[in-house]
Amino acid sequence: MTYARLPALLLALLAVAPAHADPIPPGERLSGAAFMSRETRTMQEDDFANPGMLWVREGEALWAEKAGAAARACADCHGAAEATMKGVAARYPAWESRDGRPVDLLGRINLCRVRHQEAAPLAWESRALLALGTHVAAASRGEAIAPDPDPRLAPHRAEGRALYETRIGQLDLACTQCHDAQWGRRLAGNPIPQAHPTGYPLYRLEWQAVGSRQRRLRNCMTGVRAEPFAYGDPAFIAIELYLMERAAGMTIETPAVRP
């Protein structure tokens, strides 16, 4: 019932949305946390109240667990993620030389599984992959986002920006029309944030679980009545590259909590 009321609200937004929006000036950038209630911010800040920490701890156990034909644990090569993975989530997606393509953090974990543990890749959005990803990304909590400077990423980043600015779906809306032009205003009862991916994987109250950046992007695509890309689609990696560049210098919050 509540869902049926959405198109009207989105159409109202569409009526006022300019076709082009300027990027948000660096000084005006705000994490999604700035748009949340005090209670939800407190939930994120207290490690014993933040349910995302359940995934971090689960990931910590998986990190130390031997897997695959190689009977090797992540920890056997990488040691303690808290130390060795610091800054990694702040840099990804990164260039993957062997395949000649960019990969995001969860994709990298699966490449490691296949190549070094000789195990089957974990399913996208599976609990185990999210737990490992949350554990690795939490090692960068407090670090400034510093995108991989590899020049080979540039065309992918540009493609991501183009996708971010392209109108899609039955509602014919581009990401930029909400998140650059309308941030701070309300869509139904909720404030529109600036779409900075500072806390992924994150615990979303709506999901009642931790989910990935790609799950959130799929959510947005469904919201504008577009067919979402499949998990792992290069178009998603391109958008993630652009979003991370757009958020460069902002602080990693994983495991973030969002409404």
């Binding site: 207290d46 014993f48 359940l54």
Partner: peptide, 9 residues
């Protein structure tokens, strides 16, 4: 004392 447990409820 604060307690959290992973469960879908």
């Amino acid at each position: 004392i604060k307690t959290l447990i992973a469960h879908p409820m």
